[in-house]
Design a protein around this nucleic acid. Sequence first.
DNA 1: TTCACGTGTCATCTTTTTCTTACACGTGAA
DNA 2: TTCACGTGTAAGAAAAAGATGACACGTGAA
Lengths: 114, 114
Amino acid sequence: MGGPTGDDLVEMLAALANPIRLRIVATLASRRDYVSQLAREIGVSRPLLHMHLRRLEAAGLITGRLELSDDGKAMKYYEVTDFDLHLTASAVAEAAQTLTMPDSGKGPAPKEST
Amino acid sequence: MGGPTGDDLVEMLAALANPIRLRIVATLASRRDYVSQLAREIGVSRPLLHMHLRRLEAAGLITGRLELSDDGKAMKYYEVTDFDLHLTASAVAEAAQTLTMPDSGKGPAPKEST
DNA sequence: TTCACGTGTCATCTTTTTCTTACACGTGAA
DNA sequence: TTCACGTGTAAGAAAAAGATGACACGTGAA
């Protein structure tokens, strides 16, 4: 039972549930890369890539750090983390127990009269 | 390398990346259930639950079949499938190769002049 | 018939994601 | 200075997802 909490799991799954972000992780899996170069390889604009990178980093799937190149430019390099998610029905059932519910459970069940 | 295709993976992940749907899978993991009862237990309206169930079934994570109860009512019972997703950076990298791209790769890379 | 319970769908509204365009800043080289 | 390349962010349009309410249909029991 070392899995992530329900909320964290949802965030990780949501982060991976997108073609572009899947591609970002796939690209970074082979070698780390900096933002502009990554944008060119994947074929998306930098602002868009920036947004996707933030989502992936917030979910803990990648990490980025700013470095200075030889010619003095500030480059932000990203790389993947060693995430390892094993998804089965029982794993999901366990994580779901730690889900932060909006308010259900205390509120009255949705009325369904005619 | 028996994993799902990139598109299928995205669909499965998107299906699980939601608190309510996570709860549905968790509930069905212990015992199968029919729609109205499930809606009461989870605390959502039937139309909403119906939509989430469709998404989960489309992703292949649950299956439903219509049965007739003793008192002649048509009940739709759902249960979880034996899905087993192992998510690592390399697994993602492999699945990403079979992603159906909108059009990138052929289209001109996003211009970024000025 | 009317009620309670089961099924499903459609139209609509609200919220969130996704994406583009435009801007700002910094550095090294021509 | 101007250009090329790197960084980041903010505003707004477009698209998708989430959620609700009102329907319609069927059956058994009061």
